[in-house]
Simulated scan of single mutants.
Amino acid sequence: MTPSIYDFSVINIQGQEISLEDYKGRVVLIVNTASECGFTPQYQELEQLYKKYQSQGLTILGFPCNQFGAQEKGSSEEISLFCERNFGVSFPLFEKIEVNGENTIPLYRHLKTAAKGLLGSERIKWNFTKFLINKQGKVEHRFASTTKPMAIEKNILELL
């Protein structure tokens, strides 16, 4: 049986282990984020989508990552504070992770295999790559960093 995101656990930004099974039956958008990136303003649209559709079953999960241009240098506390202060982020954030290389967390190994990027590449190219997951925990779409969150609103609505 093909794994789903529900087969994985991750550590939230407060240091607690969270089973992704907690999001069963919800549409989930998973994003690798960074605080000092040209795409950082996407936090605003991610938060808009979250507020607009949370009650209908959308969850957004943000995974800070420092692998691209060292654009996420802060501690978990600093990242959390930055996101809250600058963008009013209320969706769940997780501890800083690696999305490429030998220290890639198991969830991201799964996401990259389930939804390959351009020309079949599994590698994450930059911050704010987005994976849209259906209510059964299966990866439906992968979106590039350049795809603005509001541009995938129609994809989210199809799954809600």
Rank of each mutant, 00 (worst) to 15 (best):
S145Y: 00
K130L: 08
I105W: 05
T59W: 11
L81K: 14
I30Q: 06
I18D: 07
E72F: 05
V139C: 01
R26H: 15
Q67L: 10
E158Q: 11
S121V: 12
G74F: 04
S75D: 08
E78C: 05
A34E: 05
I30C: 05
R26N: 15
K73N: 15
N66E: 11
G137V: 00
Q42A: 04
G117C: 11
V31Y: 04
N32K: 10
G62Q: 04
F143V: 03
F87T: 03
G74A: 03
G120I: 08
G15T: 12
Q71M: 12
K135R: 12
L58G: 03
K52T: 15
Q44G: 10
K130I: 06
L49R: 07
G15L: 10
K138T: 11
V28M: 13
I5F: 03
M150E: 10
T113Y: 13
L107E: 02
F82Q: 01
L81R: 14
C83T: 00
L61W: 04
T146W: 03
L20S: 06
T59M: 13
R26D: 12
L159E: 01
L157Y: 01
Q56R: 15
A151F: 08
I124C: 03
E36W: 11
N86T: 04
Q54A: 15
L93G: 02
P3A: 13
K73T: 14
G62M: 08
Y108S: 01
K112P: 01
K154M: 02
F91C: 04
E95L: 07
W126P: 01
D22V: 08
K135A: 04
S55A: 15
E153Y: 00
